[in-house]
Each structure stands twice: as structure tokens, then as C-alpha cells.
């Protein structure tokens, strides 16, 4: 495993920890999109079906279980926890996320590495992950006051994606036969979606003002 991959996984892990910290200690999910969290729960459930079929490493298995467990429990907290759910910005979080799933499924049926159930689900999870952040970005734009934890959560998620792109470049040059077009294209699309957010985040950080996205 190279340093970019490890750093990518760690930023992903930190993003989840930041979100859990916000939910557990502050008992708030203000500014967090339930739609995006539901999409992530679906992304990890469909991608990690290979937990039952292929063993890669203990690290891999543990990380998969963490991402599965955390994404599902975050959805549960936002929907059912009696305190946390009250802070959910339901009226602002109106992205019709189910509409993203059908095109992703159709694309996965058409473009996959092999036409098997696991491979189609795997491709579906990559396409869906690429667009899963959209409801969150829309919600950020609508929320006038973005708190620090929410800003850091999205920043860490974006950093995780950018580090994965560096990891692919590194692997392409150091490993033989390492070519994964589906992962790369959907991963680059996903990273580009963060570009705008990065820009405003660093502007606000540089000028030492509160993060606000233009309407």
C-alpha cells in the first residue's frame, strides 16, 4: 500500500469520525444532508458485498466494516435518534436523491468489468459514490451558516478523493497491468465536484472569515 492510498483511507476515516463526533457529542446533525448519508450507506452496502466472497487483508476487512457500520448508524441517528433528528434541516435538504440511483444502475448494467451480479453492483457503487455528495453540496449552499465541523467533514471527504487519484497515478506507474477505467473516471468526476467547495473553503480560510458559499 502506498502513502497516498493510506493517507486517503485515513482522511476518509477522519471525515467519518468528525461526523460521528458532531452527532454523538454535540447531538446535532445540522447542515448534514441525510440524502447524501443514505446514498453512502447504499454505496458501501453494494460495494462491499465481496466481504462474503473475497478476503484481501485484515486491514481491508476492518475498514470495510467501519465504513459500512458508520454509514448505516449515521443514517439511523439522523432518522431516529430523539435529539439528533430534531436538528436535521429537513426543509432545506430537498434533493431528490432517488433519481440519481436509476441512471447509475443503468450505467452499471451497460458499463462494467464483467456482467456478473457482484461486478454490476461494484460498478453501480462507484457511479453512485461519484454523485452522492451532490445533496450535501446543495444543502451547504442553502445553509447560510456552515459550522466548522460540517466544513471540515466535507473538506476531509474531498481530500480523501483527491488522495485516491494520486494513489491511482502512483499505482499506474509502479504496478504492471494496473488499469481501472471505471474506478478512475468515476473517481475523477467525483473529485471535480469538490473543486468549487475547495476554492471557497480556502478563500475563507485565507481571509480568516466564516465559510459561506455563494447562492
Amino acid at each position: 500500500m502506498n502513502i497516498f492510498r493510506l493517507a486517503g483511507d485515513m482522511t476518509h476515516l477522519f471525515s467519518v469520525l468528525v461526523l460521528l463526533l458532531k452527532i454523538h457529542t454535540i447531538k446535532s446533525c445540522a447542515g448534514i444532508s441525510l440524502k447524501t448519508q443514505e446514498l453512502y450507506a447504499i454505496v458501501f452496502t453494494t460495494r462491499y458485498l465481496d466481504l462474503f466472497t473475497t478476503y484481501i487483508s485484515l486491514y481491508n476487512t476492518i475498514m470495510k466494516l467501519i465504513f459500512l457500520g458508520s454509514s448505516i448508524s449515521i443514517v439511523w441517528y439522523m432518522r431516529h435518534h430523539k435529539v439528533v433528528r430534531r436538528s436535521y434541516d429537513k426543509d432545506q435538504d430537498t434533493f431528490r436523491h432517488y433519481l440519481l440511483m436509476l441512471p447509475c444502475l443503468l450505467l452499471a448494467l451497460l458499463i462494467n468489468e464483467k456482467f456478473t451480479f457482484l461486478e454490476v453492483m461494484w460498478a453501480f457503487s462507484l457511479y453512485l459514490e461519484a454523485v452522492a455528495i451532490l445533496p450535501q453540496l446543495v444543502l451547504l449552499q442553502r445553509t447560510r451558516n456552515i459550522d466548522n465541523l460540517t466544513g471540515q467533514y466535507v473538506l476531509l471527504l474531498g481530500a480523501y478523493r483527491a488522495l485516491y487519484v494520486l494513489n491511482w497515478i502512483y499505482r499506474y506507474f509502479t504496478e504492471e497491468n494496473y488499469v481501472h477505467w471505471i474506478t478512475w473516471v468515476s473517481g475523477i468526476v467525483q473529485t471535480l465536484l469538490y473543486a468549487d467547495f475547495f476554492y471557497y473553503y480556502f478563500q475563507s480560510w485565507k481571509n480568516n472569515v466564516k465559510l459561506q458559499l455563494p447562492a
Binding site: D50, T54, I56, Y178, H180, T183
Partner: peptide, 10 residues
């Protein structure tokens, strides 16, 4: 293996 390279990522 070649086939599963890439599937080792999260």
C-alpha cells in the same frame, strides 16, 4: 492477482 487488483481499494 491481476483481476482483483483495484478491488483491494476501498
Amino acid at each position: 492477482t491481476k483481476e482483483s487488483a483495484g478491488k483491494d481499494e476501498l
